[in-house]
């Protein structure tokens, strides 16, 4: 009886020591979850989630402050990826938060007065120009976040949707009609 007790105590001490040691040895620096979430987010830095960029949103998700369905540019696939990553249920987009098609901003260079307000608003420095100089969008860098639209005093910026063309065209998932008759 006593010896059994000793054995049990011995085992628990040993296991406790192992756990304690491994918690020191394999200590994880920083919060890798934030990085992982940030990697899934589309990096438009658009702030539609209510946070000033993708990283802050990732941090908020990691803390559990906000749902995973606040990122329209990521699309439903983005939500699915976050759900898979975090092991939570898929949440559909709320009212009015549906994802839009891809677009890039376009500055009407006739109207632009060169006020630099949009340059300051752009989160990825995708607008080139200087004071009193006409501005222009570097289309390849533009994430389509629309943050440059509100500050423009003369409304010279429009979003041009990127249509399907021969370079970005994709093969569709084959549709097999009879098997999908499901009611």
């Amino acid at each position: 009886m006593i010896s059994a007790l000793w054995v049990m105590i011995g085992i628990s001490l040993l296991l406790g020591a192992v756990l304690g040691y491994s918690s020191i040895k394999f200590k994880v620096e920083g919060n890798p979850l934030v990085e992982k979430i940030d990697a899934v987010l589309p990096q438009t830095q658009c702030g539609q989630c209510g946070y000033p960029g993708c990283k802050p949103y990732a941090e908020a998700i990691a803390k559990g402050e906000i749902g995973i369905n606040k990122c329209p540019p990521g699309g439903e696939e983005g939500i699915q990826k976050l759900a898979d990553l975090l092991g939570v249920e898929f949440q559909p987009f709320g009212e009015g938060a549906a994802p839009k098609g891809k677009a890039v901003a376009f500055i009407d260079e006739q109207t632009c007065i060169g006020c630099t307000l949009c340059i300051q608003a752009c989160p990825v420095d995708a607008i080139a120009g200087a004071a009193k100089q006409m501005h222009t969008i570097i289309a390849s860098e533009c994430t389509g976040c629309e943050l440059c639209l509100p500050p423009c005093p003369v409304d010279c910026i429009t979003m041009e949707s990127i249509g399907e063309n021969i370079t970005n065209w994709k093969w569709r998932h084959p549709v097999i009609i009879p098997i999908k008759v499901a009611a």
Partner: peptide
């Protein structure tokens, strides 16, 4: 073909996102 073009698109998106992240972080 469908899978290949989806993978290519994801790679394009990933590249764009990485570029945007880099530029955003540099701007910050």
């Amino acid at each position: 073909r469908y899978a290949k073009s989806e993978i290519h698109e994801r790679e394009r998106d990933k590249k764009a996102a990485d570029l945007a992240r880099e530029r955003h972080e540099y701007r910050q």
